[in-house]
Amino acid sequence: MDKKKEMVFNLNNFLLAFSELLNTKRSTYISVSIALKLKFTPEKISDICSYSLAFLLGKDALNNFDFLDKNNLNDKEFLNICEFSQKLINNFDFSKNSLNQKQKCIEFVRNENFDENIKNTFLEISNKLSFWLDLENENEIVLFIYSNLNDFTKVLTFEEILKMSSQFHYYQNPQSEILKRASLIADFFEFEHKDKQIFLIASSLQNIGKLNISKTILEKKEALNEEEKEILKSYSYHTKRVLNSIMGFSDICNLSLKVQERLDGSGSFSLDAKDLSFKDRLLICLVIYSALREKKAYRNSFSHSKAIEIMKNESKNNKIDKSIVEIFDKLFN
């Protein structure tokens, strides 16, 4: 393995990190349980786990992921199992199981127009009390998943990993240009290959924690109250929690989690200038600039000149690095 170009990577470890934010653990538990009962190969079980974990991103996005066998994405039974599992999650809250809900779920499966083989397999595995108890407990689901998957850890290039991480970014921000700008910055400062790729991956995931924030706050047109502001500020914490659980992502995590920090120590983690590297400061400024240039629910996008004006005022208040703002003014104009 060339550590300057590649890293060890496990797709299901990567996707499990995001599953709490996407709320896909329970649907994945159902999919994997059915796949095991149908005696899928270990490779196909691993792929159906990955597909279910990232199901909400959509098939087009999932075509960019490193499945063991891409042919599974065109396998009708494979896709039907994932769709079946997600439909159950959409209709029932398995975190609060009761006898009445179990009966309603089973009746729902019997009456809906599902594939007969999938339907009968589900009805068979749902006869076990442990099936329903596991569905209540997400920690048990994680243990179940890992205990039933073979280890298909492999070596991937940073570009291949960026291709996957960027799908989460565009899931949140379909019109975002932050990755384009991040690439321009890395080239301007002549980052080495590995440093550039880590900067790009961190840029793609720096606000993944916002998936943990209610859309009523993220898309609110009126001014946020103090409590809502505190909730919004917590997204960096959730970003840290997610990225810390991904094998080999420590450098990416350390860069991503600091985007709300400020030179005067007024950020989420109270880090100040001495704690922030040059790359930290670059990404902080990039996130601010990109946010100002994007249209929000409560305002239109700012022009380049207005965004730079706002950032220059922030630099005067010792929030961000003045020299970086000046470079952005020339680089993005």
Score class of each variant (00 low, 15 high):
residue 3 K to W: 09
residue 5 K to C: 05
residue 7 M to A: 09
residue 17 A to Y: 09
residue 18 F to W: 09
residue 30 I to M: 03
residue 33 S to L: 02
residue 35 A to M: 06
residue 35 A to I: 05
residue 36 L to Q: 13
residue 39 K to F: 08
residue 43 E to K: 15
residue 43 E to L: 11
residue 52 S to R: 09
residue 53 L to V: 09
residue 63 N to W: 00
residue 67 F to N: 08
residue 71 N to M: 04
residue 73 L to M: 09
residue 75 D to F: 01
residue 83 E to Q: 12
residue 90 N to H: 08
residue 101 Q to G: 00
residue 106 I to A: 01
residue 115 D to Q: 08
residue 118 I to Q: 04
residue 121 T to I: 09
residue 135 L to M: 15
residue 155 V to D: 09
residue 159 E to T: 12
residue 167 Q to W: 01
residue 168 F to H: 05
residue 172 Q to V: 05
residue 176 S to Q: 06
residue 182 A to W: 03
residue 190 E to P: 00
residue 197 Q to Y: 15
residue 198 I to D: 03
residue 201 I to F: 06
residue 203 S to T: 13
residue 210 K to Y: 01
residue 215 K to D: 15
residue 222 E to L: 10
residue 222 E to Y: 06
residue 223 A to D: 10
residue 224 L to C: 03
residue 226 E to V: 04
residue 228 E to T: 03
residue 241 R to L: 12
residue 244 N to I: 02
residue 253 C to M: 14
residue 254 N to R: 12
residue 271 L to M: 13
residue 277 S to H: 05
residue 281 R to T: 02
residue 281 R to E: 13
residue 284 I to Q: 01
residue 287 V to Y: 11
residue 288 I to Y: 15
residue 294 E to S: 15
residue 301 S to Q: 11
residue 304 H to L: 07
residue 305 S to I: 12
residue 311 M to R: 07
residue 313 N to R: 12
residue 317 N to A: 14
residue 322 K to T: 05
residue 325 V to F: 06
